[in-house]
């Protein structure tokens, strides 16, 4: 068994979060299966759009959305907009009127 190693966020990979993760993954699997059962049994979910009938559509949509959001933010938005924390204070007349010597 590998020893607990810190993740990039410093979260120790201790048994408690691991159990939580297993629980989360299990719940995801269960509801995905349930949606598949709805589809196979022809249960009417009152959909408006055809995609809504695809089994697991909402789960996959959420997953893709989160992945897309984080990836674009990290690799496209952050390099473009990131500046020093005191970017506005440096030359602001409100911050004492003179820039740091």
């Amino acid at each position: 068994m590998p020893s607990p190693k810190p993740s990039p966020h410093g979260t120790p990979d201790s048994p408690a979060p691991r159990r939580l993760f297993t629980l989360l993954a299990g719940a995801c699997g269960f509801f995905l299966l349930l949606d598949l059962v709805f589809r196979l049994t022809g249960f009417d979910k009152h959909p408006y759009l055809k995609w809504e009938q695809w089994p697991g559509f909402y789960g996959i949509a959420a997953f893709v959305a989160c992945l897309l959001l984080v990836t674009v933010s990290r690799f496209l938005v952050r390099p473009l907009v990131k500046r020093d924390e005191d970017y506005y204070e440096k030359s602001s007349p409100d911050a004492g009127g003179k820039p740091d010597a």
């Binding site: 719940a27 709805f38 009417d44 979910k45 789960g59």
Partner: peptide, 19 residues
């Protein structure tokens, strides 16, 4: 409705899973 509730739970669980 059953459909809306399960869809929404699926939606939130997978957001959590992605995170």
């Amino acid at each position: 409705t059953v459909g809306h509730v399960t869809d929404q739970i699926l939606f939130l669980l997978f957001s959590g899973l992605a995170f």
